[in-house]
Design a protein around this nucleic acid. Structure first.
Lengths: 115, 115
DNA sequence: ATAACCTCCCTTGTGACGCAAGGGGAATCC
DNA sequence: GGATTCCCCTTGCGTCACAAGGGAGGTTAT
């Protein structure tokens, strides 16, 4: 059902979050809006997906958290990228690109399923 | 460690298997070689990953299995795509393409992490 | 013949992860 | 003061890739 729609999020969520934070620190809610925006709503991130992911990235040292106040005067946890996070983003981007190219190459091969 | 190397396999395994079978029926061992070959060893499929995936696809009706004898005179289970499998391949390919484009677009944006 | 190797099949943990579905609290708007 | 928006979080569930096992039947080398 809504099955094939979402699967590419697997394993690329971290990448999207890191990329979002590569500009400036953001809080979770803003990150999810940023992703929605940057992908023109192709990729949607549920809150139950996002927050665990943020904690995971923080635990691994790619991002750091700090409480602050949002533009709308609300308490918010701002995440910023660490140097390790920047390195991670570069490395993972390269790997993602390589793998995506490999798969795209395979899919491009013509076979008996001429659509 | 071997962490970022493999993650794109998530959710694209089914796609690769279906694509492999879009030419002709193959047994599991041959499929894994085909993937290795078609991606120039960028993507590797472990046996503990492949066989459960084949059973999964069969359970869902995308592929059908039949025992036979391999080119090397060994008993082998040949998988072939069903009509539903062909439809699935087309649909999933489109979704994959769309999502990959969305992510690639995001990654292409220049930010402060000029590598 | 017998050991080594290759082909081909499989299963059982284990850990990771995305998601739906919940909940809560504080600021703003009517 | 009720509704809405913003912003944080957790639990339970199902799925999945992987490592690490095992097995059996063919072939090749010694």
């Amino acid at each position: 059902m809504a099955d094939a729609e979402i699967d590419l999020l697997r394993s690329s969520l971290d990448l999207l979050i890191l990329k979002a934070l590569s500009w400036s620190p953001m809080h979770g809610y803003a990150i999810s809006e940023w992703i929605d925006d940057a992908t023109r709503s192709v990729l949607l991130v549920e809150e139950g997906t996002l927050y665990p992911a943020l904690h995971r990235l923080e635990r691994r040292g790619w991002i750091a958290a700090e409480w602050g106040v949002s533009e709308n005067n609300r308490k918010a946890k701002f995440y910023s990228m660490t140097p390790a996070g920047r390195a991670r983003l570069r490395a993972e981007s390269r790997v993602w690109q390589r793998n995506a190219d490999a798969i795209a190459g395979v899919l491009r091969r013509s076979s008996s399923d001429a659509s």
